[in-house]
């Protein structure tokens, strides 16, 4: 504990914790998308998977620890960003373009957008805010009909495109993250850079592509209510 507090008192230590919580979050989104993709197997596959999760005795442990990890990640991310803006008060050089300025701040921007998205997303598809009747549907085996919930929701073009837009921010965030995590944890050499860059793109494309594919498929009519 003493050592953890010591780490928290230094910039490198704080960044280490941002990176470690980041890894958990990456693993979470990878798990999340893997589960979501069962939607393509069929209604019962997704609903069974959801049932398995919801009835798991670990459900609340997982939910609370994810909440804690997100909070820690965000809190330290915001703190680090604040330190950074303090360190460079005159943030923009005359010779520097505005888009470079925005680009260099993409992590905090995309991070805050994602935080807002997570709040909305949890309220929306997990707690059922604004969904109405569909939220209470059950399927043939008596499981909660998550499949219909998802498809009905994404049949609304506004919601579908809002989710897709949010996933673009996830893409921005993830793309930076993968290589950065290795750097921050100290596993980085010049000779790894190309591979890590490749890995960054792969993880980003796989995760974000998977997430986007669902609202897109619904909009294109590939996924429909049965």
């Amino acid at each position: 504990m003493k050592r953890l507090l010591y780490l928290l008192s230094t910039t490198i230590g704080r960044k280490l914790i941002v990176a470690l919580t980041g890894i958990v979050l990456i693993l979470f989104v990878v798990g999340h998308i893997s589960g979501n993709l069962t939607i393509y197997i069929g209604q019962s596959a997704l609903n069974n998977y959801a049932h398995f999760l919801q009835t798991s005795p670990m459900l609340w442990v997982m939910r609370l620890s994810m909440l804690a990890i997100v909070m820690l990640h965000v809190a330290l991310g915001v703190a680090v960003t604040q330190e950074n803006s303090l360190a460079r008060p005159e943030s923009c050089h005359a010779g520097q373009s505005w888009y470079l300025h925005v680009y260099q701040r993409r992590m905090i921007i995309s991070g805050l957008v994602l935080l807002a998205f997570i709040a909305v997303h949890v309220a929306h598809l997990t707690l059922g805010a604004g969904i109405g009747e569909v939220f209470r549907l059950k399927d043939a085996s008596g499981h909660v009909d998550v499949y219909s919930r998802v498809v009905t929701t994404f049949q609304n073009a506004w919601i579908a495109w809002a989710y897709i837009a949010a996933m673009m921010f996830l893409a921005i965030h993830l793309k930076h993250t993968v290589r950065a995590v290795f750097q921050t944890l100290g596993f980085s050499r010049e000779s790894y850079f190309e591979f890590l860059e490749f890995l960054s793109w792969m993880v980003t494309l796989a995760v974000v592509g998977g997430f986007i594919s669902i609202p897109l498929s619904v909009q294109l009519g590939w996924l429909a209510l049965l």
Partner: peptide, 26 residues
């Protein structure tokens, strides 16, 4: 400030110090 892995430093370094040294420092 903190390193947020933009690697602009190494691009600007007149002596081409590689950014992998930051990983080593971490």
């Amino acid at each position: 400030g903190n390193c947020s892995n933009h690697y602009e430093c190494a691009k600007a370094c007149p002596k081409s110090i590689p950014v992998s040294l930051i990983a080593r420092l971490n």
